[in-house]
């Protein structure tokens, strides 16, 4: 077993949209991410980064190639097993938050644990703990439409952490937020990475955000064009640490 959390070898993803047209989205992607790394995947729209994210997040299977997530070969799993992998190994954070509108913050955070079969008491305790971690302990009974964008994203991050997954997979997490709240969300990722030792994969089209992570992987036309360590990492994260528990500016 490799010591990589994400271990992709020669991944292809093709869609058949009728012969002879074959749409190749990913073209021989080979990628390894170590446990505890904070990685950014950048690329313009249509570069294939969303498809790559879906495969990393076990929402989709590659057409060709092998992808081992924390030692498990995803290509060989059934739908039911993929559900389990998503439930336990992946914590999704979406650009549009994707909270369940009818459920309050606490229930939203409890949801992945509900599918994991955690007992009600344990679920509530853990959800409260996580909401406290993202600074949302005062808003636990609020429904998503009573929360600002930044607050919603913080609830979403707490939800992503619910089953203590191997990877936090964030797809443009600041895309729908203003720069100040976006900054706050980024700080939470840094905190999770540094204090909780989480592996974080950030998908973004912004080179600026990418530069504050440890490593930037650029993809273009379905292939990796560069994979570099970011020298700025330490300096970018440190100064903002004091702002983490600061008051949210309602959007």
């Amino acid at each position: 077993m490799s010591n990589f959390i994400i271990d992709m070898t020669d991944i292809y993803k093709r869609y058949f949209i009728g012969r002879p047209n074959e749409l190749q989205i990913l073209n021989r992607i080979t990628l390894q991410v170590k446990k505890g790394e904070f990685v950014a995947i950048v690329g313009p729209s249509g570069s294939g980064k969303s498809t790559l994210m879906n495969i990393i997040g076990a929402l989709d299977k590659p057409t060709e190639g092998t992808y081992c997530l924390n030692g498990t070969d995803i290509g060989k799993l059934s739908d039911k097993e993929l559900s389990n992998i998503r439930n336990r190994e992946i914590g999704f954070v979406f650009q549009t938050f994707n909270l369940i509108p009818r459920a309050n913050a606490l229930k939203n955070v409890e949801l992945p644990m509900m599918y994991a079969g955690t007992s009600a008491r344990e679920r509530t305790a853990r959800a409260k703990e996580l909401l406290k971690l993202v600074g949302m302990e005062d808003r636990m009974t609020h429904k998503p439409n009573e929360l600002s964008g930044g607050q919603k994203q913080r609830v979403a991050i707490a939800r992503a952490m619910a089953n203590n997954p191997s990877i936090i997979l964030a797809d443009e997490p600041t895309g729908a937020l203003d720069s100040k709240t976006g900054r706050m969300v980024m700080d939470i990722f840094h905190k999770l990475h540094r204090e909780e030792g989480k592996t974080v994969v950030l998908i973004t089209h912004s080179p600026e955000l990418a530069s504050e992570t440890e490593r930037t992987i650029s993809i273009y036309d379905g292939a990796i064009t560069s994979d570099v360590q970011n020298p700025k990492y330490q300096s970018a994260a440190a100064p903002t640490e004091s702002d983490q528990s600061g008051e949210e500016v309602t959007a």
């Binding site: 559900s83 999704f92 994707n98 909270l99 369940i100 949801l111 599918y115």
Partner: peptide, 16 residues
């Protein structure tokens, strides 16, 4: 539909 997608992403099985 979207809620179903969210639930599935969070680990809901088809049977759930």
């Amino acid at each position: 539909t979207r809620e179903i997608g969210i639930r599935k992403a969070l680990g809901a099985k088809s049977s759930n």
